Amino acid sequence: MNIEAKTGKRGLTTFDLKVLGIVFMFIDHIYEMFSIMGAPEWLDWFGRPVATLFFFISVEGFTHTRNKEQYLKRLWLGFLIMNIGNYLVQYFFSVGNLGLVNNIFSDLFVAVLSMYGIELITEGYKTKKYGTLFKGILCILSPLLLSAIILLAMTNGSMSILMIGYVLPSTILSENSIMVYLATLLYLFRKNRVLQCIAIAVVGALYAGVNVTALFTTNTQWMMVLAIIPIALYNGQKGKGMKQFFYIFYPAHIWILYIIASLIYTHFY
């Protein structure tokens, strides 16, 4: 069942999904930066569907982009710039013990790299080009292998090796860790919106099952299932262009919120 083909131009465009994700993300980050000063916990609920929504958008972006390598390069540069900016902001400002570890570019890079790997494996298998097939396997495995190296370094206390995680995205250091591969499932099911929504629902149910008694307190990630609503309404249209806006807005709003929170906390708490 291809809902995209049936919905025509009615519903939400990619632009609409991005705006929705950005608004919810902004509210969530207000909670993150100001929770130490009493920001209500329910603000955090807005952020739970955001990663899932951006995973879906990344599938659409990867599927329709003309230059997939350039797409990956942009995400890697965003990841690198975000890490440098996080370090510099925390060097001059602080909000209690709140560490600035936000970097959705890491998640998106790992997710899109897995999509690229699947595409290369498919191409290599069809054309009998085993070099292409091997490259695809490497694309999928490299973030996991890097995660193993980082985990081993942490276990052995080799902290200098951890620096590689600030230059190359890994699964273990991604904001959503292993959940980034939900994006891979969404890519595999890209031609069937119903299966995409089922995949999201199943992952959300797994999160809910971790601690059923704390579904509205400490265990709120299950709320990611709410991303199903806008995704189901997606009409397959691009809408207005905002190609570079997210790359600028994402780091800028996090750094600005952190700096404002630091100034308020330092002077009034």
Rank of each mutant, 00 (worst) to 15 (best):
I121S: 05
A51T: 15
Q196H: 14
T13G: 10
W45V: 05
I27G: 04
Q90M: 08
T171C: 13
W45E: 03
T13N: 08
R74V: 14
Y269W: 03
T266A: 14
Y207N: 12
G96E: 02
G47W: 13
V194N: 06
T132D: 08
Y234D: 12
M33P: 01
Y265L: 00
H64I: 11
F245R: 03
L17W: 10
I260R: 02
T13V: 08
T171L: 15
F79G: 06
F79A: 07
N103V: 02
L146H: 06
M242A: 07
L195W: 10
K73G: 12
M1A: 05
D16G: 05
N86M: 01
K191Y: 09
I140S: 04
N103M: 01
F216W: 13
S174W: 06
L162S: 02
W222D: 13
S262L: 02
L133H: 08
E123L: 12
L233A: 15
Y187G: 10
I228P: 14
V19D: 04
I22H: 02
Y166H: 06
S106E: 08
K126T: 15
M33I: 01
L233K: 13
Y258M: 01
F109D: 08
F34G: 00
E4D: 05
I178K: 04
E60T: 13
L108M: 11
N235H: 08
V225Y: 15
W42P: 00
F249Q: 07
Q70A: 15
N67P: 08
A39E: 00
L80T: 14
R66T: 12
I36M: 02
L138R: 07
S158W: 11
L263C: 11
G61L: 05
T220K: 09
S94K: 12
L206W: 14
F246D: 05
M82I: 02
A201T: 15
Y116V: 04
N97H: 06
L108S: 13
N86Y: 00
S158V: 02
F216T: 14
D44L: 07
V19H: 04
Y71T: 10
Y187P: 11
I256D: 01
I137E: 10
L215E: 10
S160M: 04
K129T: 11
